[in-house]
Amino acid sequence: MPVNVIQSGIMTTIQDMGRPGYYHLGIPMGGAMDRYALRAANALVGNPEEAAGLEAVFMGPELEFTEAATIAVCGGELPPKLNGQLRETWTAFDVEAGDILSFDFLQAGARGYIAISGGIATPPMLGSRSTYAIGALGGYDGRAVQPGDSLPIGAQKAQGRAGKSIPNDLRRGPTEGCVLRMLPGLYWHRIAKKAQRTFFEDTWKVANEADRMGYRFQGGQPMEFVDREQPFGAGSDPSNITDACYPYGSVQVPSGTEPIILHRDAVSGGGYFMIGTIISADMDLIGQLQPNKSVRFAQVDMDQALTARKERKSMLSALRDAIA
């Protein structure tokens, strides 16, 4: 029995953990921008953590349930309302047939993740239900959900999950003065020493061009480049390189002015140099950044990046233990 979409917010998409393995063909892995939040929401309602849920950016949708289910909303502070009554985020609660789920104004973060017991059961494409809208792949007929859509729900529903709640210290989201850790990369030597310093010293602001493909930042000092003769195949701007692969999380800075972090729906290659890569442990945090928020970057080495990855994994283990 489906969940009916009455309002779809600004952009609500079906997401799971994505479709790794096709990036070399230009198809990004996609999946939840904040994977930790989707895992948490699925774990709360007793779904496999990789089940498909809804990712709602800035505004929640309005949904009508046609059968009983357990749901949870995690990630940004997007307060759910059941038949108009406010409910807790990061906490599982039951819904009945005919109930209407809507949302209050977003209070913090950028994206809320809605898990429904049974999981969303649209047909997987290339191994994932994630919506890659530009490629018309996955999701609901290859697109974001729209009013009038009926979302199929899986039959395997866990029972007795209502009331389960993620402890406060395991609710991960952005704080004011967010710091993103970056490992300098192959082209780091292309910017002058001063630019290598000011990139980490300056406070940057999230621009309006912030979506599933990439996040743009403004407000730091323009970068000066180390002089060189442009190599064969590279464009004439000093930020141009001979076309290369773009890693997820890579930080390109066209013309040395506004850094762009490539995210889950990244393009796979191009001709802009990349000063480094945001570590995997901090990618979820980017998905919870609102435009106009302040951010700083911090330099880490590979050991620190791997330590951060381990810490993130142990946080996920703690979450599983807390709501088992």
Binding site: I10, F58, M59, F105, L106, A110, N208, Q290, P291, N292
Partner: peptide, 9 residues
């Protein structure tokens, strides 16, 4: 009247 969205008004 409140804005549901962040951005530039």
């Amino acid at each position: 009247i409140k804005s549901p969205l962040p951005g530039t008004f």
